[in-house]
Amino acid sequence: MNSALSITKNIHDWLFSIMPEAAASIAEMVLIALVYDAIKLLSKELTGTTRADKFLYNLAPYFVIISSLMALSVFPFTKEFQAFDINIGLFFLIAVSSIGVIGILLGGWSSNNKFAMIGAMRSGVQTISYELSIGLSLLTMVLLTGSLQLSEIVEVQKSGWLIVQGHIPAIIAFMIYMIAGTAETNRAPFDMVEAESELGAGFHTEYSGMKFAYFFLAEFINMFIIAAIATTVFFGAWLSPFGITESIPMLGVFWFLLKALILVFLMMWFRWTFPRLRIDQLLTLEWKYLLPLNLANIVIMALLVWLNLTISF
């Protein structure tokens, strides 16, 4: 037996020797698989096409990951546990989360691959369109709060979560926000950018190892960000339902994460159920349905606030 074969055999034997214990419980298996996955991605070779634009190609993953990590800084996990409480918090979030698309465009453009480029171009079209809906649906809610500062927004919700306060228009705004948010993170059914059955892997076709992992991580962080914005704006961030744990402020983190993860689950539910839209249908949905509805919704919400028809306890 030659040496290469014996090395493979040794690795194989080693894996088999640790696997039976791991297989004892599925939960344990999943955790170990996660660790293996991380090790795999860290240790993999960074390949790339020879005629790629090396500088932009290497820069792209950082754009994506940094923009999503930056957005995490403003969320109010509890009243005290908030890194930045700037007065344009919501505006900052929308602004930062749209930087990510530059990374995707750069990555698709610079990797010198036509599949990647189609993915990148689709991403540009998609993100620019859906930015609009995200912004407008959040603006609808801002009409209720009268402030862009996230701590202020939470403060307003002490007399009822905004989705209750704003009732019908708020629910419509929430639905539009979730649709647009799913599109913004490039998740199915709006995963035009990757569309594995059409483009192979889309914009990150030529990335491997940790650079690919950055794109991958950013997608999941973005999903959390979208859910966290929804939690903050619609579901009262760290506020517990009916104030049941108001005396223990630290439990705010628990409530925040619970609400956000439920919304993340909802997005995953979308993903495993729905077929993907076609690129022109994606734009039809945005420009012909979401945008007019959204504009009408803002007017309704403005009337609601003006006539004082909101529900508050």
């Binding site: 059955s197 495993w272 159920t273 077929p275």
Partner: peptide
Amino acid sequence: MGMDVGALT
């Protein structure tokens, strides 16, 4: 067919 149009389940 579902997979090709993007539905995983």
